[in-house]
């Protein structure tokens, strides 16, 4: 079965083509969905890609969380289906309270576009089921606001080995309590082929695809 994955395009998204390409390369039936659409056409899972949705005005993700498509994203999440937010997508999920916490400016007040090593902390999420606990992944980050602040005790999916941005507890990615909504700052689609310098992002992308093929988690 070829799972259908919707990759949401907001005005200002800029990683959607990379995500669609990487997911298709892994065998998924990935396609774009517009942020103004009220439904996701029966997709098995959804990705909110990186970029600067709605210009990141006010706060990162603050306006995007009210895009019409977000009701459909929330419905999918409530249904136990896989929802993955990458970078700006993570910021949107946090603003929408689909994952806990918030992302503030990097500690060094610099935009960071660097390779990072992260470890897999929890293999029972839609983004890590193909990984092993403690597995180290080499995946780049590309953000100004990736400094994670917790709101309570988040369920941690990924941690940085060397904290690049001041994130609390080295957190690079979290999930909701059910494990079917995951947000992370590193870009797995940019580490999806050896030619890009690493193919470790494939563990995350194939986890997502496999998760779309199994019954809902709720």
């Amino acid at each position: 079965m070829k799972p259908r994955i919707a990759v949401v395009v907001f005005p200002g998204s800029n990683c959607e083509q990379d995500v669609v390409h990487a997911l298709r390369s892994e065998g998924a039936d990935a396609d774009y969905a517009w942020h103004g659409d009220a439904d996701l056409g029966g997709a098995d899972g959804v990705v909110l890609p990186g970029g600067f949705a709605h210009g990141d005005y006010l706060r990162t993700g603050a306006i995007a969380r009210f895009s019409p498509v977000m009701d459909a994203v929330r419905a999918l999440a409530d249904d136990g289906k896989p929802v993955l937010g990458i970078c700006n997508g993570f910021q949107i999920l946090a603003e929408a309270h689909l994952v806990s916490g918030a992302l503030i400016k990097n500690e060094g007040l610099r935009f960071l576009c660097v390779w990072t090593d992260i470890t897999v902390e929890d293999t029972d999420t839609i983004a890590t089921r193909a990984c092993e606990k403690g597995q180290r992944l080499r995946i780049p980050i590309n953000h100004y606001e990736g400094n994670y602040r917790a709101d309570g005790q988040p369920r941690v999916a990924f941690r940085y080995v060397d904290n690049p941005n001041g994130a609390w507890e080295n957190i690079a990615g979290v999930s909701n309590d059910a494990g079917n909504v995951v947000g992370l700052m590193p870009h797995p689609e940019r580490a999806s082929h050896e030619l890009l310098g690493s193919a470790d992002g494939r563990f995350i992308l194939t986890s997502l695809i496999e998760s779309c093929c199994v019954p809902s988690r709720t």
Partner: peptide, 8 residues
């Protein structure tokens, strides 16, 4: 709801 993020 919108203008502030009361988490932070």
């Amino acid at each position: 709801r919108f203008l502030a993020n009361t988490v932070i």
